[in-house]
Nucleic acid binder design. Structure first.
Length: 557
RNA sequence: GUCCCAGUAGCUCAGCGGACAGAGCGGCUGCCUUCUAAGCAGCGGGUCGUGGGUUCGAACCCCACCUGGGACGCCA
């Protein structure tokens, strides 16, 4: 049970008790609305409940707060409860309880930070899903980092998480891709007359791919029947593109449990079944030779084509089948999609489609990750594939490294457009928040390393000796991790994590500056051992936080 | 024209119904005989885009407008 839940319950009980004894009039007990006040003067927790209750109770807010104080059960973990103008109820945790949490953190080890929020419910996080027609660029990378961190955090919060990449290996764009691959392959074999289609993929990476395929397969596809050659060579090209995408993503620690093929929806009949169900529910109409989803009648701003007059299904149609598969075939309790800003217009119609299929759209959470602008000094480079200026993920990792890449992408809310400052990310100094956080971990590791070299044992250390403000502040900060995990699982906004990591590092650096840990003085041995416990616990929490963010926790720097 | 996102310190961004609006970078001052100064402490810096409204209380909710970005295709 999280400490905030304990406090919440104590206050709720206090209201009931106060009412029973006539100190407060009768009314329904609302949510306690517990805050973590910014100012330490206001305690560890604060409730503005009395302010909200004033009208209902017909009492002054401060009087309500004062009436509640004597009814909040005293004793661990609460040290003090008091009313503060204009009507807050403040709660301070007891130092003794805080000290004991050090042993608790050590006992939990790598599991510290876990919560039972998810209760084992299943959640799928589908992210990146870049069309395998080109390399991963920095805009996709933001979604990749966001998705993997969200997945890590949801797993920590007790959800059964599936990380999934949707491979668009069907549809018109792939036909164009296959034709482009074939042209580059033929060109690599000296056939200058083979041209990239009008709207084909012209990136240099396909020239390279064409040469590789030519080297591997020779000219046998040139003598084959054209249609079959394009299909077979295209399939080989697709797998190579996917390998490249997989490799690029692995460099920033992004991995998937499932690579779901769009084609499988057609092969298994699930696509037909989804369309048939929409038709059966009366959500479609034939018009101008095409099959339309009548989304306008369901509240969307317009209808959308499902099957073109050519008989070709649209991307939207197979995506509906895909989402039906997530909810119906695989029964995920929740589904989280992370899409780029250019898919924003797709959100409403997908939710509308779910409703048309009888699936509660509330189970589908779509996060739109906004554009990334790369900045190098004063110069700005738009990171968008369609403007022609491709800045690949691979280039970015070469430039700034995986950890900086992850930290900077994570530090911004998904819905905010962001600037990625390459200069700052590359700086190997404390100006760079990445190093600031990792340096704290390396400093901790250094202390523990030296303690071991001196054969110091600290498993019998007594945390009740930790009374310095910096020591208690560090403990308090450590204990916030599970609250952040829980909150991120609800808000799906992991950008709180890097901010928390920086705060935790600050708390440690302050402690480090004020409290010497290692000592050769026998008289100081008990305090040293207590501090070693604290330091080890801090290392556990910092490493876990970095782990959730997919970043490394260096032993030395 | 319609829809979505953003507008908070010189810059990049947190905060999104409560107690004097925060951090990092940049600027200025101090602090290394002792566990890594990739650190710590301090100073300076803001009509929270504008105008209304709701509320005991608004950066946060509602309405209108302004600015920037994105989306409005039988592309994905």
């Amino acid at each position: 049970m999280l400490i905030r839940e304990v406090i919440t319950q104590r206050i709720a009980d206090a209201i009931t008790a106060a009412q029973q004894q006539g100190a407060l009039p009768a009314f329904d007990v609302p949510d306690v609305a517990l805050d973590r006040p910014q100012d330490p003067e206001h305690g560890d927790f604060a409730s503005s409940l009395p302010l909200r209750l004033a009208k209902q109770a017909r009492m002054a807010p401060l009087a309500i707060a004062e009436a509640l104080v004597p009814h909040v059960a005293a004793g661990d973990p609460i040290d003090r409860v008091w009313a503060a103008p204009p009507g807050f109820l403040n709660v301070a945790l007891s130092p003794a309880w805080l000290q004991r949490q050090v042993d608790d953190v050590l006992a939990q080890g790598e599991a510290f930070g876990n919560t039972s929020t998810g209760k084992g419910r299943s959640v799928q996080v589908e992210f990146v899903s870049v069309n395998p027609t080109g390399p991963v660029h920095v805009g996709h990378a933001r979604g990749a980092v966001l998705g993997s961190t969200l997945a890590n955090t949801l797993a920590a919060a007790g959800f059964d998480v599936t990380r999934e990449y949707y491979v668009n290996d069907a549809g018109t764009q792939m036909e164009i891709f296959y034709a482009s691959v074939f042209a580059r392959y033929a060109q690599a074999l000296g056939r200058a007359d083979e041209q990239i289609p009008e709207d084909g993929y012209r990136g240099d990476y396909l020239v390279v791919l064409g040469k590789e395929l030519a080297a591997e397969h020779g000219d046998r596809f040139l003598s084959m029947e054209r249609k079959q050659a394009v299909a077979e060579l295209g399939a080989a090209g697709l797998e190579r593109m996917l390998d490249g995408i997989r490799t690029d993503l692995a460099r920033i620690g992004v991995e998937f449990d499932v690579w779901f093929r769009e084609r499988s929806l057609f092969e298994s009949g699930q696509y037909d079944a989804a369309i048939a169900e929409l038709e059966g529910r009366g959500a479609t109409v034939q018009r101008d030779g095409a099959l339309w989803f009548t989304s306008a009648a369901l509240g969307d701003d317009k209808d959308n084509v499902l099957v073109r007059s050519t008989g070709q299904p649209t991307y939207f149609a197979s995506d509906i089948a895909y989402h039906r598969n997530k909810f119906e075939e695989r029964s995920f309790d929740r589904v989280i999609d992370i899409w780029g800003a250019d898919h924003q217009g797709h959100v409403t119609r997908m939710k509308t489609a779910m409703r048309a299929l009888g699936i509660d759209p509330e189970r589908l959470h779509i996060i739109i990750s906004q554009l990334v602008t790369l900045r190098q000094g004063g110069d700005r480079v738009r990171a968008s594939k369609r403007t022609g200026q491709i800045v690949t993920l691979s280039d970015l990792v070469d430039e700034v490294g995986a950890d900086a890449c992850r930290y900077f992408f994570l530090a911004r809310a998904a819905e905010s457009q962001m600037d990625f400052d390459l200069e700052l990310a590359k700086k190997e100094s404390g100006d760079n928040p990445v190093y600031y956080v990792q340096y704290a971990h390396a400093r901790i590791a250094g202390i523990l390393r030296q303690a071991k070299e001196r054969s110091v044992r600290w498993d019998d250390g007594d945390p009740s000796l930790l009374v310095d403000d910096a020591e208690l502040a560090l403990i308090r900060k450590m204990l916030l991790l599970p609250e952040h995990v829980e909150s991120i699982a609800m808000t799906l906004a992991p950008h709180a994590l890097p901010h928390y990591a920086a705060e935790l590092a600050t708390a440690f650096h302050w402690f480090y500056d004020r409290c010497r840990v290692l000592s050769a003085e026998p008289a100081e041995a008990p305090l040293m051992k207590a501090r070693l416990k604290l330091v080890e616990a801090a290392k556990t929490v910092l490493a876990r936080t970095l782990g959730l963010m997919g970043m490394s926790a260096p032993e030395t720097m």
